Simulated scan of single mutants.
Amino acid sequence: MINFVGRRNWYFLFSGLIILAGVVSLIAFGLKGGIEFTSGSMMTITFEQAVEQVELREEMANLGHGDAIIQRTGEGDFLIRTGELAPEERDPETGEVITPSERVMIEEALEERFGPITSFSFESVSPIIAAEIGRNASYAVAVAAVGVLLYITWAFRRLTRPFRFGVCAIAALVHDVLIVLGIFSLLGVFFDIEINAMFIAGVLTVIGYSVNDTIVVFDRIRENVAKTPSGHLETTINNSIMETLGRSLNTSLTSLFVLLALFLFGGITIHYFILVLLIGVITGTYSSICIASQLLIVWENREIGRLFRRLRPRRVPVRGG
């Protein structure tokens, strides 16, 4: 039998190092936001013939958008991000177009320089909408966390101290979210990967998956505590983890195979959404076994208090002369 409980300090150390690296990156660099969070315009363009990224960048600079972010997504496919583009101007009396929109001017100029454009999509987000999306995303994550806490506390109400189960589940949830955020912060630094609305949907999905996996283990702990109320808590929790280990791993592996296939062969629009889920499934399975359940033992044994007492400097009595 694997002694998961006996190795809990190693699990905490491993998670702490990963979260520390992510938090440092978040503080230093933050998350690289897409237009949903920073406002601006984004165009997805497919040219009929091969186009070099350097040439496209030069043409955008000639059009007055030297700060445009250009990413190649395929042979002849490009993703272009700019500031918010000006709309068309019309005569207030006749309604005729006086000045075409910047989007139209860019499309016509690129087509004249590089040849026919086979597909062109465009989206724009104003600063007000971007701020509202960011605020609503924070509210969604906070509401989900509170809902999880209340539900688990109610579901385990027949046990002594059911609130601890809820808090430990939230701690595991925060653990998973911090790892996802930290990894995407690092990806933004090194690979210019941006987060968008799909990223928020992925984080909320990770929250649901993490809680689901944690509840499976907690529910088995509840059953075993009811069978042997006088049993040792560490033994009960370790047995519960072993009894649910096969189910957790099988569920996670089948999910990972599907997500990996979608990540490799799915469209570019869901690429990073799937990446969030891949990271979330791995961290959710890990945290349900190695974090949430172990925190119950730490809380029950009051190990955190003992740790602080050890770290607190002792007062050396001064002897009188």
Rank of each mutant, 00 (worst) to 15 (best):
I45W: 00
G202K: 06
F165K: 06
T251G: 09
I128H: 12
G166Y: 02
S287L: 06
V54I: 12
G320Y: 12
F308P: 11
E36D: 14
V216P: 03
G16I: 10
H232S: 15
G321T: 12
I221N: 03
L253P: 08
G267S: 10
T99L: 13
N62E: 08
L79T: 08
A130E: 10
F29S: 15
Y11V: 07
G134E: 05
L295W: 04
M198V: 14
D219Q: 04
V180L: 05
L85P: 10
G231L: 05
F4L: 07
I195T: 10
D67L: 14
F122T: 11
R113T: 09
I69R: 12
I183E: 09
A292G: 03
F273Q: 05
L150I: 13
W10P: 15
F165E: 05
T38C: 08
G16S: 15
G166C: 03
E36N: 13
E243P: 07
E55V: 09
G202C: 02
V23T: 13
I207E: 01
I69V: 12
A50L: 11
R157K: 09
S25H: 08
A68I: 10
V141Q: 02
F199S: 06
A144E: 06
F273H: 04
G76A: 09
N301W: 09
A130T: 06
